[in-house]
Computed example of a mutant assay.
Amino acid sequence: MKLSVLKIPLPKIDISKINITQHRRRNNPGEVPGTFFINETALPSKIFVYSYKEDHLEELAANDMADAINFTKNHRGYTHWIDVKGLGSQSVLDFIQKEFDVNPLVMEDIVHTHQRPKNEEYDHFMFVVSRMLELDKGLQLKNEQLSFLLFKDTLISFQEDYDDVLDPVRNRLRKNVNGNIRVLGPSYMLYALMDTVIDHYFTIINRLGDELEIVEDHLYQKPRKQLMYRIQGVKKLMITMRRGSWPERDKLNELLKSTNPLINEEVKLFLRDAYDHSIQIIDLIESMRETATSLLDLYLSLMSNKMNEVMKTLTIISAIFIPLTFIAGIYGMNFAYQDPKTGEILKDNMPELYMHNGYMYVMILMLLIAIAQIWYFARKGWFRD
């Protein structure tokens, strides 16, 4: 029974783009804690305000934080979500720090976007960090920090870029009248945003799983270096996801155990579900890392087998020509049968050199030896896969 492998075309992906976009630390050693500097590549801040209650929602694209705060003050009794996109406006960050009395160390962590997922509790607010991952068609992974400040009736979110994966939450907020997102306060909004980020991990894992399946199919067709590079690229993405998912699980566990009144007790039920999702993601990542490692081992094994086949072919060819070369070497010595000066017959030299049809006899002998060797190797099974 022959195993047939489908010939699936390999998607055209630039291997050099299988990479991760993230920021490195920019702090200088010895800086005073709590100081922060705006990255010159940071985008100017755009501010969006969502003020809502059970049956009503108001939205505002604010020009600055002063307009956003005035908008929330004009909607007392509402829950507010202030979404700050881009961290390039010093005035916006300074205003938030002064207006909400935020610890300078927290503002430093918001701006220096290399933080791991974590949860920190202060007297009147909570500071939460998540890692928001996005994967484009070329397997370019964007690793972005998503920070939250949770207050009694207000949630402020900070993100580096204008694009995100949070539109499902905005749509639920606009459509889900009297739903949990409208009723359970800012702590539920915090859960909803974190849960959306976590669920997007599943989308990325599914894409990487499809990539590994395509690579596996092509490995059996024809192992080549491009496949090895793609496996290594997927492993690199998995390592980044692992770095984000493990502390994400720990952060959710801390929120579940927290007694802070800013976390609604009803929300903890939903946080437990997000915690389960984070555990599933960790299990999937570990499983896929093992799969990628196995595929890499398979590639090396197939390449080794391919090399063995090449060496086997060369060995057979060499084995056939060794006796032929031996015969040719003997008759290439040209020891004369008769001394050209004295005419003496040298009986112990090569009489075959002057034999009638000697050349034909030697060629037939060499051909018979080659045929006999090929027959012998065939019986031994050397020509079988």
Rank of each mutant, 00 (worst) to 15 (best):
S301F: 02
H75V: 15
K53N: 14
D195A: 00
L133R: 03
E216M: 08
D94Y: 08
E108P: 04
P11Q: 06
N349G: 07
W246P: 01
W81Q: 11
F37L: 14
M65A: 10
H80T: 00
R170K: 09
G209Q: 09
A370C: 01
P9A: 09
E344W: 13
F37P: 07
D195C: 00
S318A: 12
D123F: 13
Q373I: 02
S157M: 06
V234R: 14
Y331P: 00
E290I: 15
L271R: 00
L284W: 13
E54H: 05
L269T: 00
Y78W: 12
K222H: 10
I20Q: 13
V5N: 15
I327D: 07
K251G: 10
R116H: 06
M350Q: 07
T293Y: 14
M311T: 08
A292S: 15
L298I: 07
L353F: 05
I110L: 13
S91A: 14
L368T: 11
L3T: 15
T293L: 09
E290D: 10
Q232W: 11
D348S: 15
I320V: 00
V267F: 05
M65N: 09
T41I: 04
I69Y: 02
T313F: 14
R24W: 13
R384P: 10
Y376V: 01
P104A: 03
I96E: 02
A378Q: 11
Y376G: 00
E344R: 13
N253L: 01
K17P: 05
I369C: 03
H200K: 05
R243D: 10
R230A: 05
L60C: 04
Y78C: 12
M65G: 09
R24Q: 12
E120G: 12
